[in-house]
Computed example of a mutant assay.
Amino acid sequence: MNNELAEKITKKLRGTGVNSTNRLSTLLALTAFEEPEVFWQVFHENWSDCDNAWGLRDDVLNALEWFGLDGVCMTDEQQAFLSGVATDRYSRITVYRGCSSARVHGLSWTTNPKVAQEFALGHRGIRVPDPVVLKAEIRKSNVITAIPDREEDEIILDPLHLRCLRETNLQPAKYMRTMRPQWRHPAVK
Rank of each mutant, 00 (worst) to 15 (best):
E167R: 15
R180P: 00
E35P: 00
N46V: 06
H161Y: 14
P131L: 05
D130I: 00
M74Y: 00
I138F: 05
N169F: 03
D59S: 15
N142P: 02
T16W: 11
T16Y: 11
Q79T: 14
S48R: 13
V38P: 05
G71H: 04
P148S: 11
A187D: 13
G55K: 13
E154L: 11
G71A: 08
V85G: 07
Y175C: 02
E65I: 10
V128E: 06
T10F: 00
G15E: 03
M176C: 04
R180S: 08
K174M: 03
S100P: 08
P131I: 02
K8Q: 15
A136M: 08
N62F: 07
W47P: 00
N3Y: 11
L165I: 10
L170W: 11
E151Y: 03
F67E: 10
N112I: 08
M179R: 15
N19T: 09
N19D: 15
W40V: 03
T26L: 06
V85A: 09
T94M: 05
P172G: 06
A136D: 09
H44M: 10
R150G: 03
A116G: 06
E7N: 09
A29V: 02
T87K: 12
D158L: 07
L64M: 10
R166K: 14
D70V: 03
S100I: 08
L82C: 06
Q171T: 06
D76R: 04
E154R: 12
S100C: 14
W47L: 08
T10L: 01
L27Y: 08
R184D: 02
C50G: 06
T16M: 06
V60G: 01
L160G: 05
Y90S: 12
C50D: 03
A187G: 02
E137A: 05
S83F: 01
D130V: 01
E151A: 13
Q41G: 03
F81M: 06
F119V: 01
N46C: 14
L134P: 07
F43W: 15
C164I: 00
R92H: 13
K174D: 07
L107H: 06
A116F: 04
